[in-house]
Simulated scan of single mutants.
Amino acid sequence: MKVYISGKIGEEVLSEATRQKFAEAEQMLKAKGYETFNPTTSGLGGYAEYNVKNAMYKTSFYQEILLCDLVQLAQCDAIYMLADWSESNGANVELDFAVATGKQRFWEGEEDAKVFCDDAGNYTDVWMPIEREP
């Protein structure tokens, strides 16, 4: 199963903190046996920049990178929502796309897992917290 990692990025030049939280999610998912798509290491930024400069339509970097990411999400079986997903317009779009296309959904946040799972009494099937060292 291939899992797309979604969360708040909000920057064209990725900070180390953003890279780290996505890397931690990727490491946890791979340890559970999943294949992953990590948008912070995908290299799609260059493609999005090229499209902004060369497209006949006036698009922004944000629009282009979101479109690239949705194409990748379409090729995945599931989405993993980092705890800060609700702070990101892009992650909200990715979640909507995942729901609309029937992708399985996993959550870093326990409350999100409880709210969004089909059976609130059995949310542990979709809750996958990241173990962080203090």
Rank of each mutant, 00 (worst) to 15 (best):
G102N: 13
V71P: 00
Q20S: 08
K103R: 09
D96T: 14
G109W: 05
W85M: 07
A78G: 05
L66T: 14
S86C: 08
F22P: 01
D118H: 06
C76A: 14
E12M: 07
A74T: 12
M56K: 15
E35T: 09
L73C: 04
N51Q: 11
K21A: 01
E110L: 14
E108P: 08
T18K: 07
T59V: 15
N51R: 14
L73H: 03
A78F: 07
K103C: 10
F106N: 05
D96S: 15
V13E: 14
W85K: 08
F61I: 01
Y80D: 05
A113I: 02
T40S: 07
M28W: 01
E110S: 06
G33F: 07
K58F: 10
Q72T: 02
V93W: 06
Q72G: 00
Y80A: 04
V71Y: 04
T18Y: 04
I79Y: 05
A17M: 04
Q104L: 08
Y62C: 03
S42G: 03
A120E: 13
Q63A: 14
S88E: 11
D96Y: 12
E49N: 10
S88Q: 11
V93R: 08
N38H: 06
N89H: 13
S42L: 05
L14T: 02
D69Y: 11
L66G: 01
Y80L: 11
F97M: 05
A100L: 08
V99S: 01
Q20V: 02
F61G: 04
A25T: 06
T101R: 03
E16Q: 13
V99R: 15
E94H: 12
E11G: 00
S42H: 00
I79A: 02
E16F: 06
E64N: 14
V99M: 12
A17L: 07
K30H: 00
Q72P: 00
V13A: 03
Y57M: 15
T41M: 04
G109P: 08
D96H: 13
A98M: 11
I79D: 01
Y57D: 15
Y62A: 14
S15Y: 11
G102H: 10
N38E: 03
E64F: 01
K53E: 14
Q63V: 11
F61C: 02
S86A: 15
Q75T: 10
L70Y: 06
K58Y: 08
Y50E: 07
K30S: 08
W85L: 06
G43R: 02
